[in-house]
Design a protein around this nucleic acid. Structure first.
Lengths: 208, 208
DNA sequence: CGAGTGACCAAAATAGCATATGGTCACTAT
DNA sequence: ATAGTGACCATATGCTATTTTGGTCACTCG
C-alpha cells in the first residue's frame, strides 16, 4: 500500500529524523495522555515528563503541540480507514464494497465516539479546522471510493456516463452527515438505518 | 397553504393572546436589535426600552428570551422557505421544482450568512440546538420535498418502487451539507457546483 | 558535532470578583 | 379583571490580576 500520493503531507509538523525511537515514545505518550486527559488538558511538559526528557527536546521532533495532535489524530483516522479497507477487500461486488466502505467508517467512528470520547473530540477538531490529518483522511476515503466505482464500472454494476470525479465528490458530500464528526453526533439517533437509506439512494443513482 | 400540521409548535414559548399588537412590537424590536447587535448582546431590558414598556411586561408575551430568539429565527427561516416555495411553484416539472427547492434554500441561506451575519448565527444556533423553530423548518422542507416527489411519481418523471418516506428522509440527509448552517459555511467554497452535483446524483437515483 | 537542557518570553488560560442579566412576583392603577 | 411595573434574586457575564503554557535559544556535556 503506497502512501506517497500527492495527499496533504501526513508528516507535516515533523522535525528531525522521521523514524526515531524518541519520536515514537512521544507519540505513545501523547496517545495515552490525550486519551486520558484530553488534548487541551495535556501540556507539552506532561509529555516530556512521561518520556523522561525535557520539554525542549520534544521540539526537536515536532514543530508544535498541534503537530503532535495531528499525529495522534492521523493515527486514529488511519485505524478507521484500515478497518474499512480490510472490509472492502473482503467484499466481492463493487456494490458490497461500497456499502462496507461507508458503513464501517461510520461504525468505527461511533465506536471511537463512545469509547474514546477525548480522542474523538480531537478528531472532530481536526475536521472542523481542516487540519492536514483530516484532509489526508478524506482524500484516502475518496481514493478508495474512486477505485470501487471504477471496479463497478468495469464489472457493469455501475453506469458509465457520469464523469468519475463528479460522482465521487458528490458521493463524498452525501456521506458527510455520517463522516464529519460534528454531523455524525448530530445524526446519531437515526443510525444505522438512516445511513443505509442514503447508501441505497446513492446505489440507485449508480445503477446502469 | 395549511400550516396546522403536527409540526413542532412554532408558537412554543408564547404566552397570552397570540395576536396582540404588543407581541408584534416586541418581535419587530427584537428583529432590529438581534440583527444589529446580535442575540447575545441584546438584553431583554433593551427590547423593553425599545417598545416603551417595562422588562416584566415582555414576559407576559414570551416565556423567555430564547422564546423571542425562536420567534425571530422562525421568521428568518420562514422567509427562506417561502422564497423556495415561490420558486418551486413557478417551475413546471417535478425535476425543476426539486432543483429549485434546494438551490433556492441554499442561495437564501448564504445571502443571510453574508448580509445578516448575526441573524445567521442565531439560526445556526437554533439548528445545532434543535430548537422547535429549526425542527419545524426542516419538517416544512421535507413536506415540500414529499409533494414534489409525489408529483414526479404521478407524472412519471420519478420511479415509484422505493418507499416514499425512505426516499424523503434520505434526500434530506444528502442535502444536509447545504442546509445545516454549520456545514453550509464549511462547504461554501465549492458552491454552487458541489450542490448541483449532489442534486444531479439524487435525480439520477429518482429516475424511473 | 549531536544529544539534551534550564532559563526565558509572549501569549493564553485561569481564578476571583464586581456587575449585568434573565426571570419572577407581589403589587398599583385603571 | 386587565394592563403594567418596581423591587428583588440567582445566575451568567465581563474584567482584571495572576499563573500556566507553548515555544525558542544560547548553552553544556560527552
Amino acid at each position: 500500500m503506497t502512501t506517497d500520493h500527492a495527499l496533504p503531507d501526513a508528516a507535516a509538523g515533523h522535525r528531525g529524523p522521521a523514524d526515531h525511537a524518541i519520536r515514537q515514545q512521544i507519540i505513545d505518550a501523547a496517545d495515552a495522555h490525550f486519551g486520558r486527559f484530553g488534548y487541551g488538558k495535556t501540556t507539552v511538559a506532561d509529555l516530556a515528563k512521561a518520556i523522561g526528557f525535557s520539554k525542549a527536546y520534544i521540539y526537536k521532533f515536532f514543530d508544535s503541540k498541534q503537530a503532535i495532535g495531528e499525529a495522534i489524530c492521523a493515527q486514529c483516522l488511519e485505524k478507521i480507514m484500515s478497518a474499512a479497507l480490510v472490509s472492502t477487500a473482503e467484499a466481492r461486488t463493487a456494490t458490497e464494497k461500497f456499502r462496507k466502505l461507508f458503513s464501517i467508517i461510520t461504525l468505527k467512528s461511533t465506536e471511537l465516539l463512545f469509547q474514546d470520547r477525548l480522542l474523538y473530540d480531537l478528531a472532530a477538531n481536526s475536521a472542523t479546522e481542516q487540519w492536514p490529518s483530516a484532509l489526508g483522511y478524506l482524500a484516502r476515503v475518496e481514493e478508495a471510493l474512486r477505485e470501487i466505482i471504477l471496479l463497478g464500472r468495469e464489472t457493469g454494476e455501475f453506469e458509465r456516463k457520469t464523469p468519475l470525479d463528479e460522482t465521487c465528490s458528490a458521493i463524498m458530500l452525501t456521506m458527510q452527515p455520517f463522516m464529519h464528526p460534528l454531523l455524525l453526533e448530530f445524526n446519531l439517533d437515526g443510525l444505522p438505518e438512516a445511513q443505509t437509506r442514503v447508501i441505497n439512494l446513492v446505489l440507485r443513482s449508480l445503477a446502469p
